[in-house]
Design a binder for these strands. Structure first.
Lengths: 248, 248
DNA sequence: TGAAAAATTAATGTATACATTGCGTATCCG
DNA sequence: CGGATACGCAATGTATACATTAATTTTTCA
């Protein structure tokens, strides 16, 4: 199973990190299961040193949990944990939007966001929305959120948002693909896009409280998507990250 | 300078982490300065492997910054970065307070907080407040904030708050000692303690918005302290962490 | 004299051998 | 038969040798 002769341009540490992350997110390692270094060495084909580095990084990402006596295990998340992570991300993005609004942004800085908005408009115009369009939406949505975060011009906040969004189910696009199979899909996307427009408008008019509130509400769409997807359990295969979710 | 024959009960990694953290916070390593592994080995007296671990951990803490080509350097912070970090921490603590209020807490859970409040009352009663009392206040204040964070009963949020408070100048007690030399000292402490009482009251009455707002405002006291301390530059020696702050 | 290229040096990245600690098991004693 | 202790195994923690890559200096040519 080891992948030898892999790309030389990336370090062994990164390669191990990618391989182990995939393994965890795919659910082939159960939550709570210990992942030993030697086991990881066999899987990734690199030596213990970079494996160890990768494990530490994945713990920092939030996918693994350190065992007090040493070593790591796959972290388990409850549905509540996921909802809280989404609310947390929304709160941070709200703060970023408020900073942007209060501190002011040049029209030059807003340009790429508006461009992003227009491209998304082109996607959601079709009815029904194709799977490819959903895929494009995920990318554009991620770009929009990244640009918005940057507008805060606050390195500490940007750092924290990146860390909060590292968990796949907490990221802005975490549950977009999940809704692609739902009947409410298009409507939810239209609402999300309206949020996008509102927050840009609020920032432009330096309405800090409004910008903050709408980003918080925007994140709650992800929570709604999650609940809908869990109700229609037919398309859960679109959400590999849910392999980490345990009962409760 | 190496500290050999140190306590056997802690790992070499932890020892290196402590030593290097001290070195950075004391300002003996300038912001932007590269800290090589070999150099760290000489300083800490442990081998490269645990030193490397410690460097990764300190980067995660936010004290170091990874150099793209490899290695680490001491991170530089602007005054704005610090103010943003404080606002960020206040926002997260606000969210924790709101969660606690909305979800409800038992009187049993509130007990240790109220105990904490009473002990702080005993300290701020004296006028003027002794340096020892300030020291005790720092400990009790940290305890209060930790207990409050726990009340959210949200592991993802608790984790994020811990990470945000890891930077000494962003922690709840980061600038308390700085004000000990200020004439406004006692008044600020009285206000802070009022905030403490208000947030407990809000949580008890399940007033989420109020609990959130007061915690945000509470954090801004730290920002005020920082600005006061920077104006009276006479007692900056109480704040070793400011060694990391560069102009701008 | 300047700039470019090559060589040297010093740094990090990687692998592995060794040490130590925690954990499970089996045995012995009560 | 039950529990505690001791033993052995397997895991992580540590040190160091080696490989590779980045930085610096020196040398050479224009």
């Amino acid at each position: 199973m080891a992948e030898r002769e892999a790309d030389r341009s990336v370090s062994q540490t990164v390669r191990a990190q990618l391989a182990l992350r995939d393994l965890v997110l795919s659910g082939r390692l159960r939550p709570g299961e210990r992942i030993s270094e030697l086991q990881a060495v066999e899987i990734t084909g690199v030596s213990r040193t970079p494996v160890r580095m990768a494990l530490v990084r994945l713990e920092e990402e939030g996918l693994l949990e350190a065992i007090p006596s040493g070593g790591f295990m796959v972290k388990a998340f409850s549905e509540r944990d996921i909802l809280d992570s989404i609310e947390l991300r929304g709160t941070l993005e709200g703060l970023a939007a408020r900073f942007a609004a209060e501190r002011g942004v040049s029209s030059r800085d807003l340009e790429p966001l508006k461009e992003c908005l227009n491209e998304i408009d082109g996607l959601v115009r079709q009815d029904p929305i194709s799977v490819e369009a959903f895929s494009s939406y995920v990318a554009l949505n991620a770009r929009f959120h990244a640009l918005l975060t940057e507008l805060s011009r606050s390195p500490p906040l940007i750092r924290q948002i990146d860390r909060a969004s590292a968990l796949p189910f907490a990221s802005p696009s975490g549950f977009v693909m999940a809704q692609s199979a739902l009947p409410e899909a298009r409507q939810i996307l239209l609402i999300a896009q309206d949020h996008h427009r509102v927050v840009v408008d609020a920032i432009e008019n330096r309405e800090g409280a409004r910008a903050e509130a709408i980003m918080r509400e925007h994140a709650r769409l992800a929570a709604r998507n999650l609940r809908l997807a869990l109700r229609n359990r037919t398309h859960l295969d679109l959400l590999p990250a849910l392999a980490l979710v345990t009962a409760g």
